[in-house]
């Protein structure tokens, strides 16, 4: 399957985000490059502090870029853009936040929380239409119209997150940046929110940028995955390809950390600890290179040869197993 014939919705080019603190500089994201195709779920995985949220926020234009650009539907949206483009981008790219308790205004009713975007862009003809839209948005996420007059603190975590989803959906966006939307939720309701996100994606033809650290969740929801480590994207591949043929040592280490529900396998499992300092860094500077169509890995030529050999070995083993 080639990615060439799919439409690129969002493209991140050489993105770099730097934080300044009293003269000290910290590069949170280093030279990130990836495309998100229309209609797919693209996931960013990595440990805490790896810069995945920063990339999401850079796309939302909350964090300013220190280099590179973000292109949405062929138009640059990073840096200074015209007021009209700004309004378009706000409407087309929406965000779902990590902590549903913190991301809703506690002193406003659900009706206001959900209509906030409608008010800002005046996306309704009259009050009746606005209320109808709010009712529809709440219904889409499985809430009841009578919840409109309630306050966020009266809801459970899952319900609150669904209010957050309704608030984003009412803008009829094309791309949704979901910043760890389920990591603050109880395990019992994670599936509910994930299924809802999948359902909405199919109904409305949405594209997701899904930011997470939980690999089992990521495997369930995404079409393609980018693994990020210390601000650098180390591997991008389609979900099954990545789980079957992880190449970069960090990816291998990350996959080995997924707990197995079978105690026998879990006990026998060997954890691979990734240590950047113990790796062989000889040779030229590594870059993100395409090893198979759609499978990118961060490597220099020497490492590329190693990965290629490993990949061929894995493919041979699979062929013989069949």
């Amino acid at each position: 399957m080639s990615n060439k014939d799919k439409e690129v919705l969002l493209s991140v080019k050489n993105l770099e985000v730097t934080f300044h603190n009293e003269g000290r500089r910290f590069r949170a994201v280093k030279n990130a490059n990836f495309d998100i195709y229309k209609g797919e779920t693209f996931s960013l995985v990595g440990e805490s502090g790896s810069g995945k949220t920063t990339i999401g926020r850079a796309i939302m234009r909350i964090n300013t870029l220190s280099a590179g650009e973000v292109i949405f539907k062929g138009k640059r949206i990073s840096g200074k853009i015209s007021k009209e483009d700004d309004r378009d981008v706000i409407r087309s790219i929406q965000m779902i936040f990590q902590d549903p308790a913190a991301s809703l205004n506690e002193r406003a009713t659900i009706e206001y929380c959900v209509s906030e975007g409608l008010y800002n862009f005046h996306l309704y003809k009259d009050e009746e239409e606005r209320i109808a839209k709010v009712d529809k948005a709440l219904e889409d996420v499985g809430l009841l119209p009578e919840h409109k007059s309630r306050y966020p603190h009266e809801f459970s975590g899952g319900q609150r997150q669904r209010v957050g989803i309704a608030r984003a959906m009412i803008m009829e966006p094309e791309l949704i940046v979901a910043d760890e939307p389920i990591s603050a939720l109880d395990v019992s309701i994670r599936a509910q929110v994930l299924n809802l996100m999948n359902k909405l994606k199919e109904e409305k033809g949405l594209t997701y940028l899904f930011i997470a650290h939980d690999l089992s969740v990521v495997r369930f929801i995404s079409d393609r995955i980018a693994v990020i480590h210390l601000g650098r994207i180390v591997e991008i591949a389609e979900t099954e390809e990545l789980f079957k043929h992880p190449l970069h040592p960090y990816t291998i280490s990350l996959l080995s950390a997924v707990p197995m529900p079978d105690p026998q396998i879990e006990k026998a499992k060997k954890l691979v600890v990734y240590d950047e300092s113990k790796r062989d860094h000889s040779g030229p500077k590594p870059v993100l290179q395409e090893i198979r169509p759609g499978h990118f890995v961060f490597a220099n030529d020497r490492e590329m040869a190693e990965y290629e050999a490993k990949l061929q070995e894995m493919e041979k083993a699979e062929a013989s197993a069949k």
């Binding site: 909350i62 706000i90 205004n105 800002n120």
Partner: peptide, 20 residues
């Protein structure tokens, strides 16, 4: 975070002050 969310929805500073 809820102020960040409002900003992502395009809320103006004035509305942020009075509502948030």
């Amino acid at each position: 975070e809820y102020n960040l969310a409002s900003r992502c929805l395009g809320t103006s500073t004035w509305t942020m002050i009075t509502k948030n």
